[in-house]
Design a protein around this nucleic acid. Structure first.
Lengths: 239, 239
DNA sequence: TCTCTAAGATTGTGATCATATAATGACGCC
DNA sequence: GGCGTCATTATATGATCACAATCTTAGAGA
């Protein structure tokens, strides 16, 4: 109807609806797009625009955007426009430090619950990561990597940190578009193997070290991209 | 209209509307009620019921409940009923450990940004806590305590952990109804004073110790309540 | 040609309506 | 008398509408 509603946001590779409600379908679609860095920061997201692109009524989009807002995935500018937050070097650093703090804790608290069959499953997930990266699909690789970590942390049946960790992953989503495949592959000297070894030995300290190293490797693979800093908005914008 | 809609949930001390939208007013009202443990876990919360109690249309309530859901404050049972999660000892322990991990990190990352005037403000907030507890208002005291912590962590202008910390506070809300005033006062040998001293000296290690001790004190003040474990639902429920 | 103002367009919010689904209770059958 | 099935009810979800706030843009005046 409107010229602007058919925005530059055709970047929405619609996923299947798991017969679970339009609400969740929209939410998961947007979430995945954000996780894979498919939505450019600064691009204004409108309820009606997204509704038109996804061929649904504005209501499910409204709820999905609200949910993403309170998860920190998108940000409300002024009180009108919703957009993916601009990237700043400082924010990037804080988010990665938060990842380390949260995930080493989650890993350690999951350690006592790890049974051999769980380690077998983790090995399978680790292989899937390699597979995804060999297909040179950065987004898929990142998602597969997250599944490995999530499965590990969720061994603790009383886990309460996973939703928070996912929130941090979500906020880091816009950065993955800069993770180069080759670098990532090169730097992935398989800290996961170290983690699995630590799990087998029930060695909490080694597990923490492996998880932290794994996260720092991912960090390095992004920072190593030449000219990365040109993609960061200077924080003077909002000041 | 319905007999059940006028539920046992008259426990909603409506707060003022800051002329900021009915949406946020409902959200903050519910949030505050949860923070102060004024909503009994297990009590079914319905959109229409809350809407009738608060004299608003169901729409703002729907959005507020969704938001609280994704913050972990309430839980969707089956796919119909929404309720405050039952308390279990394991969950309680996990949440407090998460508090320690997150807040010691947040405090340390805020340390370099702390200026003398900020410390003055923190002293003022600390006095407010004493004041609230002298009025023997556990809920208000807890909120005042949170303001102290939040103000400290937000000294870091790039802080990204505060929303996560608030989510944990929210999930701990149902427990504060068990924090006894006298115990709390007694145990509050003012770890905050230690924290302030560490801030003045820019001593990161001491700051972490003070924050962790402060949190553990609050934990102890709850666990010291005799018969507390009778209030925990056994986790066999959902198994 | 620049600027200020006003009107139109755009968009988020809240309300009302329609529909699908789960819970509850009643009736009938075994 | 107990259990299974069906109907009624209650509730969440999704759509559409109405309104208010904001942004954009065009036009007029200096």
């Amino acid at each position: 109807m409107n010229a602007k509603t058919t925005q530059l946001l055709s970047l929405t590779p619609l996923e299947k609806a798991p017969a679970q409600g339009v609400n969740l379908w929209v939410y998961h679609s947007l979430r995945r797009a954000l996780m894979c860095g498919q939505i450019e920061p600064g691009l204004p997201l409108t309820i009606r625009g997204l509704a038109e692109v996804m061929h649904v009524s504005p209501m499910p989009v409204r709820e999905a955007l609200h949910r993403l807002t309170c998860e920190g995935a998108v940000e409300v500018r002024d009180n009108r426009r919703v957009m993916v937050p601009q990237m700043t070097a400082a924010r990037f650093k804080e988010l990665y430090e938060l990842r380390i703090v949260l995930e080493t804790h989650a890993a350690e608290s999951a350690l006592p619950y790890c049974r051999p069959e769980h380690i077998t499953e983790l090995e399978r997930l680790d292989n899937l990561i390699d597979l995804a990266y060999q297909h040179s699909d950065t987004g898929e690789g990142s998602l597969a990597n997250q599944e490995f970590h999530r499965y590990l942390y969720q061994r603790n049946p009383f886990q309460v940190a996973v939703p928070l960790i996912e929130s941090v992953w979500l906020q880091l989503g816009p950065f993955v578009r800069f993770a180069k495949n080759k670098l990532t592959q090169h730097y992935r000297i398989d800290r996961h193997k170290e983690a699995l070894q630590a799990l087998r030995q029930q060695n909490a300290f080694a597990l923490r070290r492996a998880i932290e190293a794994d996260i720092r490797d991912g960090l390095a693979s992004i920072q190593a991209v030449e000219g990365i800093h040109e993609h960061f908005k200077e924080q003077a914008l909002s000041a």
